[in-house]
Simulated assay, not measured.
Amino acid sequence: MSNSFESLVETDVNLKPFNTLNISARARYFASIENTDQLKKILNHPGSFGLSIRIIGGGSNILFADDYDGLVLHIDIKGREVIDETEEHVWLKVGAGENWHQTVRYCIDKGWGGIENLSLIPGTVGAAPIQNIGAYGVELAEVFEWLEGMDIEGRATRRYEREFCEFGYRDSIFKGELKGIVIVTQVVLKLSKDPELNTSYGSIQSELKDRGITDPTIEDISDIIIDIRNSKLPDPNTLGNAGSFFKNPIVDEARYQKITEQYPDAPGYPMEDGKVKVPAGWLIEEAGWKGKVVGNTGTYKQQALVIVNHGGATGDEILQLADDIQQSVEDLFGIALVPEVNIIN
């Protein structure tokens, strides 16, 4: 058996099947990782030394702006296992390569609550703590216990507890200090056998009322959120996209009040620290971008926050559109939009 680096990886691989924006970009080296032994073998091979390394999961939150002259590792580690259990809770250990939404539905089928509001968020379980995914009043941090990750530099595996992860709004230490350093291999979630439902969002409440549901289950909440998301977001299998392209900006009260002077109906969500979260989709729509087509790309007709690939768009085209949107929103509102999508170039 060959011990060459090329025997462990593929060369010159088109990454289009591995990103939901359906961008054609080529990786010099590529490997799908199914277990930690395989990962260690590749990282410890001299052929990987000196290479830039990029970790991907479901590819739902990345934009390849150009070809990648390094090593792309697609984490495809599977498996779900209950590692602890009490009368009230269950601790579920999940492989980083498992599909997030399928894991949510798996838990719902078992009667375990806590992540039903995070239904239909694209991507893998391994990406969830990095992004601290959140939706409809719930964040992953609320059910996260710990993760297992491999240090890309020390080639060592260790456990990262919740307190260490520095979770924030769509943020964690893995997007900051440890960005590109830790490869998530397993995630442990603490789920409830007698869940308290979060129906705080008005759209959930109105849907429950419309459906005549007075005593909802976690499955009811999940079904409603799936329907809401499907009505707003395009299916990447039919229209390439990476979901919400920008974060919702958080501004101080004075900035928000200035916006409402010109736009009395401007939506804003007060934060605990006195600041206000303003929907990026609303800002982009007011700047005239909703449904606009620019070459092979554009924004989704039903949600301006989503940049789409109408077919054949390059990463550079999408990046240029994103830059133009950012500039126009800043010119109009004085607010700098920050991409939620990871841009790789």
Rank of each mutant, 00 (worst) to 15 (best):
E148F: 12
D223I: 12
E10G: 14
G57D: 02
K247R: 14
Q326C: 12
F144G: 04
A242E: 04
G288R: 06
E88S: 11
E116W: 01
G58F: 05
N296R: 09
I115V: 08
I213Y: 03
S24E: 15
D316E: 14
D220N: 15
E88R: 05
D67Q: 09
L73W: 10
K232Y: 03
R54G: 01
N117E: 01
E10F: 08
F30V: 12
E207P: 00
Q38C: 08
V294P: 06
N345L: 12
E10N: 13
A96G: 08
F174Y: 05
I228E: 13
N237K: 14
E196S: 11
E253I: 10
M271F: 02
A242S: 10
T124K: 09
Q327N: 13
S24G: 11
R158T: 13
I307T: 05
I121E: 06
L319F: 10
W100T: 11
D215A: 15
N309W: 09
T260A: 06
R28K: 15
V125Q: 01
E177W: 01
N345M: 13
S231N: 10
Y269V: 00
I83N: 11
D223G: 13
N309C: 10
E81I: 00
C165R: 03
K301C: 07
P236E: 01
K290P: 02
T185C: 11
K78R: 14
Y68F: 15
H74L: 07
Y169H: 06
I218T: 08
D220K: 07
E261G: 15
C107S: 15
F174P: 02
E139Q: 04
Q257I: 00
S2I: 02
E163N: 12
D252M: 03
N22F: 09
S231L: 05
N230E: 09
Q262M: 14
I259P: 13
V82G: 03
Y269N: 11
N61E: 02
N19V: 05
A254I: 03
T199N: 07
K179P: 07
V251Q: 10
E261P: 13
L140R: 02
L283C: 11
T260G: 09
T217D: 00
D215V: 15
P122C: 04
D37V: 14
I42S: 12
S119V: 05
L337K: 11
V94E: 04
G168L: 10
K175P: 09
D171M: 09
K290Y: 00
E153W: 04
V276A: 09
T199S: 10
L191Q: 04
G57F: 04
I62E: 09
V13L: 09
L71Y: 02
T314Q: 09
